[in-house]
């Protein structure tokens, strides 16, 4: 008996006996769009998901991180080992996760929060995208702790989804995050907070 692969491919070829002509894909939609000040829009859209968000000056970043963490009452923070040292502020316990010395899941689960940067942010949809690159760590890091503090730099913010995808490499592990974990499963109403971090806080630098 032929193997499943050749049977399925054979069925497809038979089904397409009419070989529908080549399809020209229209690309009339807006790849870029003038949405005014993208930072203002990004801030507004992130807030719309009931995430906490504010604009901060580069020089004030450590102080702002400290005030966020203090306001949140955290003690143990996890962070990828490559975040800038000056982000690891104050009197908190910083657990570093590195490829050669990954923290066990139990430690991530027990941590009060996680601090990362991001790869790209999308103003129109209020989305941050992590690509496991610089200052972001592996995916589990931003998943298990209940509080995610994310630093977004102004030059990482683009207007539209197409602009964001153009900046990303699809073969890296990617996570698009739009607001805190939520569900619409109860009477189709969005409720924040199921399995992912229930608290998302974004600091926009610049």
């Amino acid at each position: 008996m032929a193997d499943a692969r050749s049977v399925i491919l054979g069925r497809i070829r038979a089904a397409l006996a009419d070989r529908p002509g080549p399809v020209t894909v229209p690309r009339e939609y807006d790849r870029v769009r003038d949405l005014g000040d993208v930072l203002t829009l990004f801030e507004k859209q992130v807030a719309d998901y009931r995430a906490v968000v504010r604009r901060v000056a580069e020089s004030a970043l450590p102080a702002e991180i400290e005030s966020s963490l203090t306001a949140h009452g955290v003690r143990v923070m996890v962070t990828p080992a490559d975040v800038p040292t000056w982000w690891r502020v104050g009197q908190f316990v910083w657990s570093l996760d590195a490829p050669m010395s990954p923290l066990p899941n139990a430690a991530l689960d027990r941590a009060d929060g996680v601090l990362t940067g991001c790869a790209v942010a999308i103003a129109q949809t209020g989305t941050i995208v992590l690509d496991a690159g610089y200052a972001q760590g592996r995916r589990a890091l931003t998943l298990l702790p209940d509080y995610h503090l994310c630093v977004v730099h102004a030059d990482q913010v683009v207007a539209t989804v197409p602009e964001a995808l153009a900046r990303l490499e699809s073969t890296r592990p990617l996570t698009f995050i739009s607001g805190p974990s939520a569900t619409s499963d109860i009477e189709l109403d969005r409720v924040e907070g199921v399995h992912g971090p229930r608290n998302l806080e974004v600091l926009i630098v610049g």
Binding site: T125, G126, L174, F176, S178, G196
Partner: peptide
Amino acid sequence: AERMNPYTSVWT
């Protein structure tokens, strides 16, 4: 009916 759903994961 959201601008974007909370999470989208891509892996290769």
